[in-house]
Amino acid sequence: MRRGIPALGMVALAGAALLGAGCGLQRQQQVFFAPSNVANYVLFGQVTRAGGPIAGKSVKLYSTASGALLDSLLTDATGGYGFPSAPSGEVMVKVSSDDSLDFAYVRYIFTRSSSVERDSIPPMDLRAYGCAAIAPVSGARVPVPSPNAPLAFSWTPMSVAGTIKYRARLADAADSTVWESTRDIGTSALFNGIGTFGAYAGMLLGPGEYQWRVKVRFPTGVTAATRQRPLIFTSGLAGAPR
């Protein structure tokens, strides 16, 4: 389902004013952005690129428990959006981009205590501000890593102020997570060839096609990710003890 918000007219409100109106924003203490007719929406926010509003951008709402797409709409001229209904439980608001200077997606996952709770989503800016995967290069062929010959992933950090944490994510060809590095402010991580997720947990990886990206976490709780990069693990001796 796709639809716009006709003549929504967004205004940024001070959190205190909205909270003072008693509109039931219990979980979040801060209102980042709200439609002028905010009473019509239980979940609302703004999408920007490099700080400027983006009109007509698709915003999707998912249930994280089922993975189901619950709703989809387009931002208005101010980049604003508002979902008229959203269930209780953990949900995800996600915006994707194909612009090479942007993140592949920006998303926000949180838990709603009730379906009538009204939540202001932190700003979601699509620009990657220079954050990019560096090594291995796209399509690289490398020996299967091992604890004694690990593979180093590295990336450039975002050129913005504030503490931003990164992690490398390795997935199989079907995009099932194989391994994620520890989330940290650093810009590199070592993978030792042993999976940590799902069926891969504790397993030594074999040769094959994989893909990797860098995931970013902002202080607001919003996360983003660079585009996937194909990576091929080849058979071969991946290291005697150093």
Partner: peptide, 25 residues
């Protein structure tokens, strides 16, 4: 270390005898 390595160090100098990549911090 949170750099994802287990270090084995020579006690006299602190030189690295070997490292072992753990995959996470």
């Amino acid at each position: 270390s949170d750099d994802g390595l287990l270090y084995a160090l020579f006690p006299a100098t602190g030189a690295v005898r070997w490292t072992f990549a753990l995959g996470n911090g």
